[in-house]
Amino acid sequence: MIELTDVRKVFPARRGAAEVVAVDGVSLSVADGEFAGVVGPSGSGKSTLARLVNLLERPTSGRVVVDGQVLTDLDDDGVRQARRTVGMVFQHFNLLDSRTAAGNVEHPLELAGVGRSERRRRVADLLDLVGLGDRHASRPAQLSGGQKQRVAIARALAARPKVLLCDEATSALDPASTTGVLDLLRQVRAELGLTVLLITHEMAVVRAVCDSAVLLDRGRVVDGGPLTEVLTRPHSPLAAQLLPAPAVAGATGDLLRITVTESAPEGRVLRTLAGELGLDVEVVGGSVETVAGHRFGRLLLSVTGDDGRLDAALQRLREGGSLVERAVPGDEPAPMDAHDDPDPAAPDGRVVPHLLDAPEVQR
């Protein structure tokens, strides 16, 4: 559904500043119906990448394919037509204060010239879908942050898109609203058969809804893949961000980081080390989470006992499917900066056009 091949975006030097390489040779693939995430620290190019997917920004080089169309081969009119298949949800909602919830959802349909009766039927269906059928007459100032984002999602769905791009769609929300919006995104993905690309710095969001993810750093993909594979990959930077390993400072003995899964749960790990091989085991820290619908966890264990038994235990755990890594102080990956991504796509302060500025909407 979405294919980016060696995509690069360079913003030229302005006012004496150096050029900005926002996206540097990114290739990624998102399958039809997949819920994929793009994560990374501040300034890594996440938001620029989102705008490259629907050519709100044209790449300097590389190839962008959405729903079988090579967007980078199209002229501006062709791109505007192709955007009918892509909806976009932003962090700060971008609702029109002068319009009601229904009026905001109806706006792109009006621009497209859709008839009044069809507009109103479509708006009513969408507001019901996002759980706001009873708030159709409310203005944005009368809505909570979560409700505003639901209106924005309904508006993004007005064109019956096949792809939904969400750029930090939950970053301005409180935890309860975030959970509600993520549940809604899962629902609309399932009911409408959408492909969703989620741009976020919130690892909890990725764990909650994504099937796969890529990790960006300085405009490059440094890790990625289906989450169930990433979390069992040795020395994975993305896995270290999704399930941060406990710090080893102050721990004693032989220190082991164990990744546990449904097929190699923590109980089996502890029984192997302590029950079967007679090693002394202390759980120093760790957590177990549900990721991509499956149970994963990372434990930090302090193990003492016969070295020969320990080596045998490690071998047995690895043969049983556990990811086992020896831990030493100072080897913990640094957490990502959890601030909003500064937008290198607007180094001179210009406004990036909103998707809804395009008047064409599928009837």
Rank of each mutant, 00 (worst) to 15 (best):
I2K: 00
E3M: 03
D6F: 03
V10D: 13
F11H: 11
V20C: 04
S27G: 15
A31N: 08
F35K: 04
A36Q: 07
P41A: 15
R51Y: 10
N54R: 00
L55I: 10
L56S: 10
R58M: 05
R63K: 10
V64G: 05
Q69S: 12
L71N: 06
D75M: 08
V79D: 12
V79M: 07
V79K: 01
A82C: 12
A82F: 07
R83C: 13
M88T: 15
M88G: 07
F90C: 09
H92W: 04
H92P: 00
F93H: 03
L96P: 02
L96D: 11
A102Y: 02
L111Q: 14
G115C: 07
R116E: 15
S117I: 04
E118V: 13
R119M: 14
V123K: 00
L127F: 08
G133F: 03
S138T: 01
R139A: 03
Q142C: 03
Q147R: 00
K148W: 01
P161D: 05
L164D: 09
L165D: 11
D167G: 08
A172Y: 00
L173P: 10
D174W: 06
G180M: 04
V181G: 06
V181M: 05
D183Y: 00
L184R: 00
A190Q: 14
A190S: 14
E191P: 04
T195Q: 08
T195M: 09
E202T: 06
C210G: 13
V214N: 08
R218K: 09
D223I: 10
G225N: 08
R233D: 09
L238H: 02
A239E: 09
A239K: 01
L242A: 06
A245C: 04
V248S: 15
G253S: 13
D254L: 01
L256Q: 08
G267Y: 01
L270Q: 11
A274D: 09
V283E: 09
V284S: 04
G285P: 01
H294P: 00
R295I: 05
R298I: 12
S302Q: 07
V303E: 04
G305W: 08
L314D: 03
L314A: 01
L314E: 15
L317P: 03
E319L: 14
S322C: 15
L323W: 07
R326S: 15
D331F: 00
P333W: 05
M336C: 03
P342R: 02
P344Y: 07
L355Q: 12
A358C: 12
P359W: 11
Q362H: 14
R363H: 12
